[in-house]
Amino acid sequence: MGQLLLHSLVAALASLAIGFVWYNPKVFGSIWMRETGMTEEKAREANMAVMLLMTLFYSFLIAFILHMVVIHQFGAMGMIGGKPELAKPSYDAFMADYGTEFRTFKHGALHGFMSGLFFALPVVGTGALYERRSWKYTLVAGGYWVVTCMVMGGIVCAWQ
């Protein structure tokens, strides 16, 4: 469990790094500010420590659940209730054959990308519809989560 938490924390930290680049005014920050009505003055009024800590916390939750999505071996572990000592011999045979299969950054990034595209983007997009936000906002904010889930998925899948 300790490794799971560490991997999630590192992946969550990656979300901050991606955000610093993604929301830079020279990348998508100016578009995001225009589409949300944010000004530099309003941005300076924010409590950045709280915002960054909460971003880290929320990203940690996402990275934590991404383990179950990007690491196929969690399915086998779930079938036995998470207790290998109670497993039937078929579990040991399965893990002997497939224990580290598909545990690469590339594979995790693929599943992370699909999670971002088919889960995070629709969540952001649905909220944007009701908030009367533009398609540009949806692409910038949703795109950030697609890329972030992709990188976080790669990190948690490759790190063994």
Rank of each mutant, 00 (worst) to 15 (best):
G19V: 00
T148F: 03
M150P: 07
A96P: 04
V146G: 02
T36L: 13
T126K: 03
V124R: 07
K42T: 07
Q160S: 13
V123T: 10
R34G: 08
A63I: 05
M95I: 12
D92F: 14
H7C: 03
V151C: 02
E85W: 11
G78R: 10
F74P: 04
G116S: 14
A93V: 07
Y91L: 13
K106I: 05
K42Y: 03
A93P: 05
D97C: 00
E85Q: 08
V147D: 02
V70K: 09
L66M: 05
T148S: 12
F94A: 07
V147I: 13
V156F: 04
M54L: 12
M48W: 15
P89K: 10
A46K: 15
L117E: 09
S90V: 07
K42C: 00
G29K: 03
S59M: 02
S30M: 12
V21T: 03
R133Q: 15
S90P: 03
K42W: 15
M48H: 10
Q73C: 01
F74W: 13
G82D: 00
T138K: 11
F64L: 10
A49N: 07
F20K: 01
F118K: 05
G153D: 11
Q73S: 04
K106W: 15
D92L: 13
G108T: 01
F102T: 02
V151G: 07
E101M: 14
T126H: 05
G112M: 12
A87P: 13
G143C: 12
F60G: 05
E45R: 14
M51D: 04
H72C: 09
T100F: 14
W159F: 07
L16H: 00
M51F: 06
N24T: 02
E131H: 00
P25Y: 09
T138F: 03
V151M: 10
D92N: 13
M77V: 11
A14K: 04
D92E: 11
A46H: 09
Y58C: 07
G29T: 12
L9T: 09
G81P: 12
G142S: 06
Y144R: 05
G78F: 15
K106L: 01
R132G: 05
A14L: 12
E101N: 12
R132D: 05
I71N: 11
V146P: 00
G99F: 12
K26V: 11
T100E: 11
W159C: 01
G82P: 09
H111V: 08
M150K: 01
C149P: 00
A120G: 06
G75Y: 06
Y137G: 09
L52S: 07
G78N: 01
L66P: 03
M33R: 13
G142Q: 08
F105E: 13
S134T: 13
I65G: 02
L129I: 14
G99H: 13
A12T: 09
M54Q: 07
N24R: 09
L129R: 08
L117K: 06
S15T: 10
M33A: 11
Q3W: 14
M51E: 04
M150L: 10
F20E: 03
F118V: 06
Y23W: 10
A11I: 00
G29V: 07
L53T: 05
H72A: 13
S59C: 10
S59K: 11
